[in-house]
Nucleic acid binder design. Structure first.
Lengths: 133, 133
DNA sequence: CTGGATCCTCCTAGATACTG
DNA sequence: CAGTATCTAGGAGGATCCAG
């Protein structure tokens, strides 16, 4: 019942890690990176380590749940490290790994693009909305 | 219905375009860009114009609904243009605008990062999962 | 201070079927 | 060919309370 010939299947296998292929691990990774909180967290940490409370203050509007969830997944993926200092009260620092830094540049570039071109986008939207009345 | 006073709205307008601020337009724009399909569509179009069916074939796993939805929002935002040729059958071409091209470089960089560092991420995950048994 | 655990409510992705 | 219409399950994510 596969609608694919053997040749086609071989073709696909040769594609290595092409994120366009569905179910490809890279596709899944891209899915993770395509997360608003991920961009903001990585971007926030790009200038240096921060504590949990620092992050929740800097990234306005993030709930503790989402912040923790995002941090955990990024820690698991080796993007950042989590350091607990057993003082009273306890202190936790988050810091980008080397891998994380290599990503941070790209994500902050996207964030900066958004900040830079927001005007153009808004103008485009107004034009589009006006023409489709 | 708005839970915001005029004063608060003015306050917000003054915050400039810091994407960390919740409700900031840039934040919203970043949210849009943080979409798996957006990355894939823009990345696919970066090498040149494509027809609807080309895109749906290249971006395996995308449903017609999501593809159309993504294309529409990108068109509205001025990232790409949609050209209808009224032949039989009808032919529709999508092409990145100048604005779109300025974004494409960034997004394909992220996509490429995912393809390049997937191994490291997997190793990190294995390590993490092993240590938290 | 740094979260874990729960509950609950939308939202929306995705599958499917259909049309000009 | 290039979409639109419809439906539903699942999960994202906020709110709340609690704990080490």
């Amino acid at each position: 019942m596969p609608t694919m010939t053997a040749a086609q299947r071989r073709e696909q296998a040769r594609e290595e890690y092409d994120a366009f292929i569905k179910g490809c691990p890279t596709n899944q990774l891209l899915d993770r990176l395509s997360d608003k909180w991920v961009s903001l967290v990585v971007s926030a940490l790009s200038t240096g380590p921060m504590r949990y409370s620092d992050l929740s203050r800097k990234i306005a509007g993030v709930s503790p749940k989402m912040l923790t969830q995002t941090l955990r997944s990024l820690e698991r993926d080796g993007i950042l490290t989590r350091t607990v200092t057993p003082s009273v009260p306890v202190r936790v620092d988050y810091e980008l790994s080397a891998l994380g830094h290599s990503l941070a540049g790209l994500l902050t570039a996207v964030k900066r693009w958004a900040e830079t071109h927001i005007e153009e986008v808004h103008e485009a939207r107004d034009r589009y909305d006006a023409s489709t009345d």
